[in-house]
Nucleic acid binder design. Structure first.
Lengths: 188, 188
DNA sequence: TACCGAATGCAACGCACCGTTGCAAATCGA
DNA sequence: TCGATTTGCAACGGTGCGTTGCATTCGGTA
């Protein structure tokens, strides 16, 4: 099997079939043959480009429009963090995205391609979130020792745990309580 | 197929085979036939008691000794939270446990038995952690509005994100920075 | 110890997906 | 239009699934 470097002509159809199958029926139902059928492609076309389901998913994730995000700039740290919390929650609250997210988490220990794609995504995301904290520091809102990664992992980690593991919802009151709890330990 | 209510004679061997297979080779390698072989049992014995791999795993998790935990009582809120953080990190840092944990996360959207077992575990865990915060409140260390669940989800969520998703380690200095960040927003 | 009922072992089944192969057909670019 | 690349296609052996019917073994009781 000589794996071609270039992508199949219907690569986009393969990616969207991958994501929609994953979102609608879960990781177990995400089989190469099912992806091929839904994408209108023969399975050998997929096997000739990607060695494993892991690699298909990794490439599909990179192009997923659901994972696009914008960094808020409301003028205050509290406003920005509230916006970020709502944005994170919106992603986690959608049942379709939830299957994608949990599939990615389960890929972390053993599936290198998806794990690397996830790592790059979160590193990129953190890099852009850094601007929120830089601006807050310029405004004098933030203690010098405050660490963007630790704060985002507090905010995001709480929402992940709350939403995914405790299977609870969250409303504006929750976001405010969360952000204020984090903030009070951060604000100078 | 009449599923027997009682458990197979070698249920313990089946459970430990389930967990060790999951920990050592990941969820994909966790097949009923592999569990049966490792437990020294024929696969029909397993099928006669559990309808799905999900149910086997759920029952195995309930009896998992790795998931046992003790609630610290160091005399101060900061000491207790540090102990809890170290305890959570110790679980997350072990690669064997990591496969179990990510498998549980991936089970949340679609596999009801494991999801319910996980839900009961974390609810029970929170119930026992509540004592830490009750004692802190009695000592006057804690604001009245402070919420045990939100604080534990901040602490645990941060460690989950940091360890599992960012694939980073943590040492005593990290735990102290984490706990102090959370605390300063909580202490009266 | 001998018995009886329950639990387990066993072999075999059709099914789905895996990952691969060789070759024919379609598509694209020059 | 032509030549090269890409894709479709059919078939293969392999593995794990979940089920079935029946033989065997086990555990408790008399």
């Amino acid at each position: 099997m000589d794996r071609t470097a270039s992508r199949p002509r219907k690569a986009d159809a393969i990616f969207s079939a991958t994501l929609s199958l994953l979102a609608e029926r879960g990781y177990d139902a995400l089989t190469i043959e099912a992806v091929a059928a839904q994408a209108g492609v023969h399975k050998t076309t997929i096997y000739r480009t990607w060695a494993t389901k892991d690699e298909v998913l990794a490439d599909a994730l990179v192009q997923a429009p659901e994972l696009a995000f914008a960094i808020p700039d409301t003028g205050s740290l509290r406003g920005d963090l509230l916006a970020l919390a709502k944005q994170i929650h919106r992603l986690l609250a959608d049942p379709a995205n939830r299957r994608v997210i949990t599939a990615v988490v389960s890929a972390l220990p053993d599936r290198p391609a998806t794990a690397e794609a996830a790592g790059r995504f979160f590193a990129d995301r953190l890099g852009r979130e850094q601007a929120v904290f830089d601006r807050a520091r310029d405004r004098g809102e933030l203690a010098d020792a405050a660490d963007a990664e630790m704060l985002m992992d507090l905010l995001g980690g709480n929402l992940w745990f709350h939403t995914l593991i405790r299977a609870k919802s969250a409303d504006d009151a929750y976001f405010e309580r969360l952000v204020d709890t984090v903030l009070t330990g951060v604000i100078r």
